[in-house]
């Protein structure tokens, strides 16, 4: 297949890539742009480790082609902090120990962020449903739920400003 120039807007920066049109978004982000915070844990769109935000909504970046993401605002884990200040959800993950090996954490944090973007006051069950597509083998999820709840409760609002 003939290579193609694709412009991806990732974390507010336009990256011009010359890639095969069948390149997955996760491959473009990791292998071409070099942002390796986004992980891959399966080949079947099952684990959620590659979750990123597209216009604020969560998407598994192994399930879309890079070309399909052109023209959208893509946010990866590296794009959550602002000038070295962590986002509330990142602070909450730290306080709750909502990660252990950390391999699922970037995807899990992006799913949590997307959930909060859509529903700033989720119930416990809504949180669980919101992160159901992300597998964490270490924590048993409850600390992640607590982290999302802590953000929803406004505990980290001053960090936001």
């Amino acid at each position: 297949m003939e290579k193609k120039v694709v412009v991806l807007n990732v974390n507010g920066i336009d990256y011009e890539l010359y890639i095969n049109p069948k390149t997955l978004l996760v491959e473009a982000i990791r292998d071409y742009i070099g942002l390796t915070g986004t992980k891959r844990g399966c080949d079947t769109v099952s684990c959620g480790a590659c979750t990123v935000l597209i216009n604020g909504m969560s998407i598994k970046s192994c399930s879309v082609l890079a070309v399909q993401a052109e023209g959208y605002k893509i946010t990866t884990i590296e794009g959550l902090e602002k000038n070295g200040k962590l986002a509330p959800i990142q602070e909450a993950f730290l306080d709750q120990g909502a990660y252990q090996c950390g391999f699922c954490a970037p995807g899990m944090i992006m799913s949590s962020q997307a959930l909060l973007n859509e529903n700033p006051n989720p119930t416990e069950w809504e949180i669980r449903e919101g992160i159901e597509g992300n597998i964490c083998r270490c924590t048993g999820y409850n600390s992640i739920v607590r982290a999302v709840q802590a953000v929803a409760s406004g505990k980290y609002t001053e960090v936001k400003s």
Binding site: G37, I77, Y99, G102
Partner: peptide, 17 residues
């Protein structure tokens, strides 16, 4: 807080992968 936490929640942690 876990001392590796910042690296892990910001995507800075470099795994063999």
């Amino acid at each position: 807080r876990n001392i590796d936490g910042i690296a892990k929640v910001t995507g800075r942690a470099v795994y063999t992968f």
